[in-house]
Simulated scan of single mutants.
Amino acid sequence: MSEHPTGPVETGAPMNYEEHEKTYDMFIAGAKYGTMIVVALLIAMAAGFFTAGGFLGGILTFIIACVAGFIFLK
């Protein structure tokens, strides 16, 4: 019914570890900066909705939070 292979387990092409590490680093950077932007957006929305700053205050808060986040995460 089922076949039991007797050869090596890895039969595909050899791994390109350098490319794998580049992809992993890009994923980590995307997750890190994406999370930072979402948090900055939530803070800006709270500042815009619950303070007297309104829409422009929220945008200004978002820009300041993003700049601070990029500086902090470098």
Rank of each mutant, 00 (worst) to 15 (best):
F50R: 00
A52Y: 06
I43K: 04
I64M: 11
Y33L: 05
P8W: 03
T51Q: 00
I28K: 15
G58V: 00
L42V: 09
L42Y: 08
E18S: 14
F49S: 07
L60Y: 12
E3D: 14
V39A: 12
P8L: 12
I59H: 08
K32R: 15
L73K: 11
V39K: 04
A13C: 07
G48Y: 00
Y33S: 06
F62K: 00
T35F: 14
F72Y: 15
F50I: 00
T61P: 03
T61A: 06
I63G: 07
H20C: 07
T11Q: 09
V9Y: 03
A13M: 11
I28F: 08
S2R: 15
V9I: 12
I59E: 05
V9P: 03
A68E: 02
H4E: 11
K22L: 02
A44I: 01
I71Q: 04
T35P: 06
L41R: 10
E10V: 12
G48H: 01
E3V: 14
G7R: 13
V9C: 03
A65M: 03
E18R: 12
F72Q: 09
L73F: 09
I63Y: 02
K32M: 14
A46M: 10
A29Q: 13
A47M: 15
G53C: 04
G57S: 00
G34A: 02
I43L: 13
A44Q: 00
A29E: 14
V39P: 02
A46V: 11
K22Y: 03
F70N: 09
F50S: 05
V67M: 06
T61K: 01
L41Q: 12
I37C: 10
A40F: 01
N16W: 05
E21H: 08
M45Q: 07
E3W: 15
